[in-house]
Design a protein around this nucleic acid. Structure first.
Lengths: 138, 138
DNA sequence: TTATGTGCAAAACATTTGCAGGAGT
DNA sequence: ACTCCTGCAAATGTTTTGCACATAA
């Protein structure tokens, strides 16, 4: 269960992690690339993808495979749920209890060994509801 | 809330719907294409994508944006949860109660208008646990 | 008849990978 | 030194789109 950093601490990795920690949004790989590029202009997009993947494999960050076409990344690894605005596409954390008990229900209802679960709510965010924001998606 | 078929009933659409209804797996667009192509060899992949998208917009089928790289489609539109095998990547339905009450909790915990939620469990399926099946993914 | 839908091919995205040179330990 | 890592560019995989022709209503 331990994730010993099976990886060198390179400048690129430090900065990716720092930039990801600065934001509460859940940026896509390309958005992380843009953030990091301001400090490391010569970094390659492949490096960003490789390192985001590696860090999520090592449990240092979270990879979200939520609705939408791109994967998103989150510096918070504690279990928590997400909510996605179907109008503008943004993904927020939602501060509510994790329903640990449904894993047992799932264990009974399937022949899987349950590893965990994720809940994604969908809805309309405050800004979109008030029409203050255009819809960059869809 | 009604979904009047805002669309013509073409042969292609009928057959896509029929083939999707035959399976309990949650095929990707490409898998639907392969299934449909046996009966309509000249159908284009673009047509399959266009129609799956259209039918899911009209509530006739369900588009699943679960983990993994490709979207998956489901002929069952009634709310239900899914479970994905992290080893072989397959997605099954899971026969357990939908937790309707968590929408209210989410409403309180956010400033979103909640439209719904989806739960995706992850685990190891029986076949993978017994090592009877290779891992086509990862 | 006429708005919609289709097949085909190209384009647009998102992500992964091979490789030669570079950096951490 | 000796791995492991990076930048770059090309390759891969998925989904979308433009367009001329076909077809359901």
């Amino acid at each position: 269960m331990e994730q010993l950093p099976n990886m060198r601490l390179t400048t690129q990795r430090q900065i990716i992690l720092e930039e990801l920690g600065k934001v509460t949004s859940h940026p896509t790989a390309n958005e992380v690339y843009d953030m990091v590029r301001k400090r490391l202009p010569r970094i390659g997009l492949g490096t960003v993808y490789r390192n985001l993947e590696l860090m999520s494999d090592n449990g240092i960050i979270l990879k979200l495979e939520v609705g939408g076409t791109q994967k998103r990344f989150d510096a918070t690894v504690e279990p928590h749920y997400h909510i996605r605005c179907t109008s503008c596409g943004k993904v927020d954390d939602i501060a509510m209890e994790v329903q640990g008990q449904i894993n047992q229900a799932a264990e009974k209802a399937s022949n899987y060994i349950i590893l965990g679960h994720h809940v994604e709510f969908s809805g309309i965010c405050g800004e979109c509801a008030r029409g203050k924001k255009e819809s960059p998606l869809h």
